[in-house]
Structures are given as C-alpha cells and as structure tokens.
Design a protein around this nucleic acid. Structure first.
Length: 811
RNA sequence: GCCUGGGUGGUGGAAUGGCAGACACAAAGGACUUAAAAUCCUUUGGACCGCAAGGUCCGUGUGGGUUCGAGUCCCACCCCGGGCACCA
C-alpha cells in the first residue's frame, strides 16, 4: 500500500480526540511525568521553531506514556502583550478579538500536528480567570513587602508623547519616528523584590547542576552577579575643614585603598545634588555628564568627570581626596559611589590619566615579577605604601582591613548583587491591571481580594499616543477607595507579561479552579516539572522570574518545591539560508503547507533528524523530501500484501538488528536525546529489512514489524498508529508498552577485532566473543598482513583489548 | 574585555581514548518504462600504485604535548556563533 498521510493523519487525529487519549489525571497507581514546552505567544501562526520545540517534547511525552507514566503534557497561550496593541493601532482590531482569533487559528494548526496535549487544561493568560491570580499574587507580595513603588526611568518618545517599551526603541530612537531620540523620564512604578531572593536564586542553582545546561546556569550566575567586597565611609570635609556626613562607596578591593586618589559619585547620586547646590556652573556641568551617556554604546563612552571642589577623607590614611562626579559611575550598582584607585583599576586609570590625577602604586605582583609598564595592575599581589598593612598579600589584607574598619565603624564587609528588582509596571493596555487604587486621603490602597479580578475594560480605543491607555477609560479609572469609600483612581498601568509566564505551569495542574490559583495537593502530585523544553533566549529573564515566583509561592505556603523545574532542555534555532527564519528575510517555511504536502509526521521527522535537538538546525527542502521517502518506504514494506515468506536464513540477523535498534533508541531517550541517531538506527533496520526481504520467515516479520511501528511512535505517531492497525494489533499505540530489548540477542556473538601495528590499521579478525587475550595476541601475530609489518623488527609490546583490538608495537 | 558553544567529505551530521565519515541530502551511473515520475541497485574524502583483485600514503581549524593508540584528553593560538558588558 502507498503511504497517504493526507488520508491517515486526519483519521487518527479525530480518533485520538474522540477517545480523549491525552487526558490525564492524578493517578496514585502510576509514576507521574510532567513534560512542558514553553507556551507560545499567539502571533497568528505556528512557525518551524515551534514545531521543532513541540516535536521534541511530544516524542518525550509519548515515550513516557508508553513507559507507563501518567504524563502531564499541557499547552496554553502567553496571550497578553504589545503586538495585539500594535494590531489595534494598525488595523483597528480590538486586541482581544485579534488575540482570540490568533489563538483559534494556531490551535487548529496544533491539532493537525497531533501533539499529545491534554487540551482540557489549556490556559490563556489574557482571560480574567487566569489574570485574576496574577493580581492575587501581586497583592500577596504587596502584603509581604515584596512589591513596592519607586521612581524609575522609562523610555519616552516626545513625538508620540508616550512611553515606549524597550523593544520599541531602535538605536536610541522611536520605532515609529526614526529620527526622534528617545528620552528618559522618571515615573513612579511597581517593582517586585527579586533581590530579596538573590542569595537563594544563586545557591539553589547547585541543585540544578545535573539537569540544566551549564551555559544557562552560567548566564544566570552572571546575571545575579554576586560580588564580595566592603562598604567604606569617606567622611566629607565640611566647610570649616571639619568632617561631615560620609560618602559610602562599595569596593571589592579594599586592599587597594591606600592608592585611592579621588572619590567618584554617580551624577544621579543624591549627594551630587547637595554638593552642587547654589553652583549653577557645576549643575550645568553635571547635566552635561548625564547627557553624554545617552545614545551610543556604553562601551565606547568617553569617561568624563566634574570636580565638585570638595574633599573627602580616606578613613585609612586620612588623606584628603577630591570629590568628582563621573559619567561611568552607575547609581544602580553598589552604593552609586566609588573610590578611584588608578594604579589598580583600568577604568580609574583611564579617568585619572585624563584629568591628571596622581597614580600611586600600592600593590605589586607577588613573587617579585614586574608590574605592567603601562596601565593598571589589576590582579592581587602584595601591598606596598599601605601604612600598617604594607607587606601583606591582597587576600588577608582585605580581611584585616575590613575587620579594622568594622571595629572603628567606618567600613563593613558586604555582598553586592548585580541583579536588580523587577520593574513590572507597563504603561500599556493589553495586560493584567495592577490591582491597587490611588486615594487622595489614604494613598496607595490594595484592591481587596474578594473584589478580584480587576477586569480589563474591553471598549477602549488604542491610539498609541499619550500615557497609559487605561487613563482614557473613565469607568475604569474612577472608583471608590476600598478603605475610606471616598473617590479614588485605579492604577492605570498593567503588568509585564513576564508575570503571566512566571507561574503558568502551576495553573495547568488545576486550570479551572476559581477559589485559588491551584489546589496545593495537585501541585504536590505533579511538581517539579520533570522536563522543561524551550529556546535559550529565555535562559535569563523568564527562567529567573519563574524561579523567583516559585520561591515566593513556597514562602506563602502554597507549594512545597523550591524549584519549578528539575531538568531544562534548550533546543537550537531553525536556520534557513544561513539565517534564523523570519518574515523580514522571507525565508520562513509555513508548517501548514508542509502538512498539506507531506503530512505532519514528515515535518516532525525532519525536525528531529536534521540535527541533534540542542543544535541549530539547517532547513533544507530536499531533506524534507528524504523524510517523506523514508516514511513511504516503511509504510510500503510493512503493508506489503503479496510477500512470499522466505526461508528464514536472515531471521537471526534481523532479530539481532531489531534488538540493537530498540536498545539504541531507548538509550537515546534515556541520555542525550540525540533523536537524529535514533532515527538513523531505525533507518538502518529498515534498510536491512529491504535487503533481506526474500530470506525472512513470516515469524521473524511478525516480531520485527510491530516493534518497528512502536519504535516510530514517538517520532511519527500518525504513521505508527496506522501501521499498528494494519498489523491488526489492538491500539492505541500510546497505551502499548515500549518494547524491551533482549540484551543477549542484541549482542553480536562474534567480534571483529582490529589489528594494528604501531597504531595503524593493518587488518581485521573475526573471532568468537570473549576470546582470551593470549589467543588474540597469538592470532594477531599469525596474521600474514601483521606479520609483513612486524617481520624483522623488535616487538616491544602487544596491547590487547578483548573483542576490540590488538596493537603490536614494534621498533 | 569577560563568560559560553562550536570548527569533521559537495551539504546536514555520526563516532563519550580503539576501524574517521554511520544515517541522510546532493551528485553521477545503471535497472524498470514508449517516455517521465515513482521505485530499486551501484559509486561518491583526497593523492598515488595496479590490467585486476587489491594496496600505499595523507586527512577531523593551526602548532605543540600526553598515550601502544587522539576528532575525542592537556597547553598555546586562529576563526565563527550566542550571552553579558564601564557592575567598582
């Protein structure tokens, strides 16, 4: 029979759906397995990157089902976000309608592929049933001081008179007004205190070591950026030469403090404003510094500073140090102030060279090597010219100096993180409303839990102009204060969509719960996620935020697990013509066209065969053809009706090959997921079937063919299901146990032993397995070929690896 | 600059110290066919020797090293991709 995916795929899709095949519940009698693919943004159509992601996850889910697990394999929609608003501006389509129609279309595409999702658990983050729990978590964090307000910079386009998201800023300009420079404006915004968990987020990564890619952990470690150092107070010299309030600096190199030649403040540091008060010239110079930072790359920013004509005292040496404001000092990191040690820091060196400040050496390389002739010596060494600390190596000096500072009250060892709190306010419409009201009398008042959800109004015109769009909806904006009952205004910002995706995988466990985000018992059953699969582009933000949410939820007593995900797999991108598929480049392949032409199984198979799943995959149309040919070849062989049974002379060989293939595919699932090699092994089996067709007995085919269908089931499920039916086996395949291999049968009983002389291949020997070392050595030396290379030379040594190789070393 | 992943035939890739190039794509040739498609079979890293069967040498970015033996381990360097980037 000919392979006809256009006929068999819709047939099985309907049967699977009718049987509710992928429905799963908590079953105490079976082991559980939670396999999760990152939920998509409903952009309108699935692209090949999605298909690749889901093909990997689906192969795993189906394999686990066949292994007897209860497999939770859900799908949903990350449905809030900017594109829906842009569509509203461009096409006058309401964001909700746009989003829902995209979801409907993508879901149809999904179903054609036949992925094994339990659609009864579908979650869409833009529905009030979902986002009310975003609001609920927000209120819980507010109660615990984990959500707070502060001033922060936003991107502002003067032309649109609106706030821009970072992705709307292109080369420092507005995406819609290419020549308009984006300005920075300060706005009161909501933050979640991710920094409160910085130490835990870092420490718990040790537990992820096994199941997470090393590079993702490294990226997260860098992002959290823990540095050990010290805070040091430099007292300000007051007007009468007397010390006044201190400037606190952070440094990791307190051992270099005798080499400090000035103190540098960030332009935005509160002390800066104080110190330039009444000096219009200095104020203007500081403003110019701030401007120097905007636009352009931070890397090639020229260092600039302004001397404030004031001094601070080095608490160790008592030296008077000039106070400068410098454009490269960041308010957000450390204390927003540093001591400049030009001899031992590259940036300080550049700065002090430029302004002619002294560059005294206080650290020399240990072991008497020479310090670099130019630039700063930034490594640890031995202290010189450092008062009582002279002669100490850097590390103990740091400890002693911090201890002294602590004793005297002007310094303290401390830890600083690069991680910042998570700004979640967005001046956008299509998102979760922030559930607080602003009351003139009571200030910021949380919306009481029983009034949730704060519904996002649907009748609104999106113009892309002005501030938060929700300000234009009076019915939403105007409310009463829950505390005093007086008139109040709702917060008109919405939450970052990363909030939605920080906990969605918990909701899958109990998606229709209307009394709580979920039932904790269900979480206890399913969590942690056994395998999470997605693109590496989410290595930092999404994966840190969701780890943060998990820790908060645990501290709220809702869940018991510390981490959401046991194992993470990051798949590679899909590349065509040397670039990532994108509409701009016009190199996209439409998955649906592939299904029309070749069927979903062919598309899946190509995604799995063309490269190992963690690597980027090069798309080729001819490769797709190849997969179609392979499936056709399998189908034709299995369904052949006119076959005359052979004499069975190849039975032994084909059964061995079958068991080797089962072993190979099973091992691939249990280790590296190199499905490209699993499929190659299955292809070899099929090739052997064709080659030995005339010599296979009916009995051998009765063993091999059904197992071949089972081996294909995780990768090409429609084809496998149809073959299973054609072989008159009771299905569905998903409920059939994964085949087991017979280890003895899979092992060859003869071994081909390689013969080498001085490491060079000189011959082969077929011997019974487990032939003794002595026999192997004797046989090798007796081999005429080996003999011709050994003859007349002195044998130094003979290396024998049983069942593998004999290497004769001669001189 | 720092942190990462990688560099193997015409192409995607295989080989977790032991036969480099599994499997597939592409290409070439052949069978079947009136013909085409489809299908099936054969060849396919390079150089050289041989009428042939077959054989020799070279070959995994470059240079060193460890080892009986290195694509694989170690050191140095070159190139490409990704992330972070004045983080004190």
């Amino acid at each position: 029979m000919e392979y006809n995916p256009q006929e068999i795929e819709p047939k099985w899709q309907q049967q699977w759906e009718a049987a509710d095949l992928f429905r799963v519940t908590e079953d105490p009698a079976r082991p559980k397995y939670y396999v999760l693919e990152m939920l998509p943004y409903p952009s309108g159509t699935l692209h090949m990157g999605h298909i690749r992601n889901y093909s990997i996850g689906d192969a795993l889910a189906r394999y686990k089902w066949m292994q007897g697990f209860s497999v939770l394999h859900p799908m949903g929609w990350d449905a809030f976000g900017l594109p829906a608003e842009n569509a509203a501006i461009k096409n006058q389509r309401p964001p909700r309608e746009y989003t829902l129609s995209n979801i409907a279309h993508m879901k149809r595409q999904h179903r054609r592929f036949g992925f094994s999702y339990d659609w009864a658990r579908e979650v869409s983050t833009c529905e009030p049933e979902y986002y009310r729990w975003n609001q609920w978590f927000f209120l819980k964090m507010l109660e615990r001081g984990l959500a707070y307000r502060k001033n922060a910079q936003v991107n502002w386009c003067p032309e649109c008179a609106t706030v821009l998201a970072n992705e709307q800023v292109v080369d420092g300009c507005c995406w819609r007004h290419e020549s308009t420079r984006v300005e920075q404006r300060a706005l009161e915004q909501w933050f979640l205190k991710t920094t409160a968990y910085a130490d835990q987020l870092l420490a718990d990564m040790d537990r992820l070591q096994e199941g997470w890619p090393e590079r993702v952990l490294t990226m997260q470690r860098n992002w959290i950026g823990r540095s050990e150092g010290a805070r040091i107070d430099f007292r300000l010299e007051g007007p009468g030469g007397k010390p006044a309030d201190p400037i606190t600096v952070f440094t990791t190199r307190i051992d270099t403090i005798y080499g400090a030649t000035c103190v540098l403040l960030a332009p935005e540091h509160p002390l800066t404003a104080q110190l330039v008060a009444g000096r219009a010239d200095l104020q203007a110079a500081v403003r110019a510094l701030v401007d120097s930072r905007h636009g352009g790359d931070a890397t090639d920013l020229e260092k600039q500073g302004v001397f404030l004509e004031r001094f601070a005292l080095n608490p160790f040496s008592g030296e008077r140090l000039p106070i400068w404001v410098a454009n490269f000092v960041l308010l957000e990191y450390g204390t927003g102030a540093i001591m400049a040690v030009p001899a031992h820091d590259d940036r300080d060196h550049e700065f002090c060279m430029k302004y002619g400040l002294p560059i005294p050496t206080v650290i020399v390389p240990a072991g008497g090597e020479a310090a670099p002739a130019q630039g700063a010596f930034t490594e640890d060494g031995v202290l010189v010219n450092s008062g009582p600390f002279t002669g100490l190596p850097s590390a103990p000096a740091r400890e002693k100096m911090a201890a002294l500072g602590r004793e005297k009250g002007f310094a303290e060892a401390t830890v600083t993180y690069r991680l910042r709190d998570w700004g979640v306010s967005r001046q956008r419409y299509w998102g979760t409303p922030i559930p607080v009201v602003h009351c003139a009398a009571c200030g910021v008042v949380p919306v009481p839990e029983d009034q949730l959800p704060v519904l996002l109004p649907l009748n609104i015109e999106i113009t892309g102009m002005g501030g938060s769009p929700l300000q234009t909806v009076p019915e939403f904006l105007n409310t009463t204060c829950p505390r005093c009952g007086g008139p109040a205004r709702r917060d008109t910002d919405t939450m970052d969509t990363f909030v939605d995706s920080s906990w969605y995988f918990y909701r899958y466990c109990d998606p229709r719960n209307d009394r709580a985000p979920f039932d904790s018992a269900k979480i206890a059953y399913w969590f942690p996620i056994d395998q999470y699969i997605g693109g590496v582009e989410h290595a930092i933000l999404h994966l840190i935020y969701s780890r943060f949410f998990t820790k908060v939820m645990r501290d709220l007593g809702l869940i018991k697990n510390d981490e959401p995900t046991r194992r993470l797999f990051t798949q590679g991108m899909v590349i065509k013509d040397g670039a990532k598929m994108s509409k701009n480049l016009g190199n996209v392949v439409d998955p649906e066209k592939l299904v029309d032409e070749y069927g979903a199984d062919t598309a899946r198979l190509f995604c799995l065969f063309a490269a190992p799943p963690e690597k980027d995959l090069d798309w080729t149309d001819s490769g797709v053809e190849g997969m179609y040919r392979f499936l056709s070849r399998v189908y034709r062989f299995v369904t052949r009706e006119d076959r005359q049974p052979g004499d069975g002379s190849a039975d032994r060989q084909i059964r061995r090959k079958l068991h080797q293939t089962i072993r190979k595919v099973t091992e691939d699932f249990e280790s590296r997921w190199h499905f490209n090699t699993s499929l190659a092994a299955i292809m070899e089996l099929v090739n052997e079937l064709y080659q030995n067709e005339a010599n296979l007995s009916a009995g051998a085919l009765r063993e091999v063919l059904p197992n071949l269908a089972l081996l294909l089931a995780p990768f090409a499920p429609y084809t496998a299901e149809d073959l299973w039916e054609k072989l008159a086996r009771p299905g569905p395949v998903l409920r059939v146990p994964w085949p087991k291999f017979d280890a003895a049968l899979a092992t060859e009983d003869e071994a081909e032993v390689v013969l080498q002389v001085n490491g060079k291949l000189r011959g082969r020997l077929v011997v019974p397995r487990q032939t003794s070392r002595a026999d192997l050595e004797r046989l090798a030396l007796a081999d005429p070929k080996v003999h011709s290379f050994v003859d007349g030379k002195q044998i130094l040594k003979v290396v024998v690896v049983p069942d593998k190789l004999v290497n004769v070393v001669v001189k």
